[in-house]
């Protein structure tokens, strides 16, 4: 009797935890997109007002935002400061391929970031701002979509987990 109850409890815990995990991923994406957008905004300020050099600007941005998004910026800065001959675009791309698997972002987000990388640092101030603004607006759109998806899907997955657990228990009983 007790053993059965314990088993049922374990099943319930594990299925709802899985559901929660999936739900969390749905919520993490809009959050990370928001952080990214914030980071690009900071970069914009660094470029347009302080006219900092890109590596230093990236370092500053990395300090101001939270993990895990900050690693994108700190790693790119590091690659540039090492002076191994990478352009900003190349360094950014290398960093993205390295860190994206650790983030909750999708391939459409990746595309926006890669696009931005192509113009990073290689044009005048107005042009830099234009590209940064453009990337931000794309990210904002994705963020809105992701938010909607999150609101819809996160509770769904949570309940799914819970009910799956309950179903299994009922079937086994």
């Amino acid at each position: 009797m007790w053993l059965k109850l314990l088993g049922a409890f374990l099943i319930l815990v594990s299925t709802s935890a899985t559901g929660n995990l999936v739900a969390k991923n749905f919520l993490a994406r809009p959050k990370q997109l928001r952080q990214l957008r914030h980071a690009l905004q900071l970069l914009e300020t660094e470029i347009s007002y302080s006219l900092s050099f890109l590596p230093q600007a990236l370092e500053k941005v990395a300090k101001a935002i939270e993990s895990p998004i900050n690693s994108l910026f700190s790693q790119t800065a590091k690659l540039l400061l090492n002076q191994e001959g990478y352009t900003a675009g190349e360094a950014w791309k290398m960093t993205l391929t390295k860190f994206l698997p650790e983030l909750a972002l999708k391939s459409c987000d990746e595309e926006i970031l890669l696009q931005l990388g192509n113009s990073l640092g290689c044009s005048d101030r107005d042009n830099q701002l234009k590209h940064l603004k453009l990337a931000q607006s794309y990210l904002q759109k994705e963020e809105a979509k992701a938010e909607k998806e999150g609101v819809k899907n996160a509770p769904l997955w949570r309940y799914c987990g819970l009910f799956l657990g309950l179903t299994i228990i009922i079937l086994l009983y």
Binding site: I47, L80, Q83, T87, A88, A91, D124
Partner: peptide
Amino acid sequence: EKTLQLMSRSSLYALE
């Protein structure tokens, strides 16, 4: 092109 980017430390905007 690459040399220019490296010389400007990827910051052409700062060297207008």
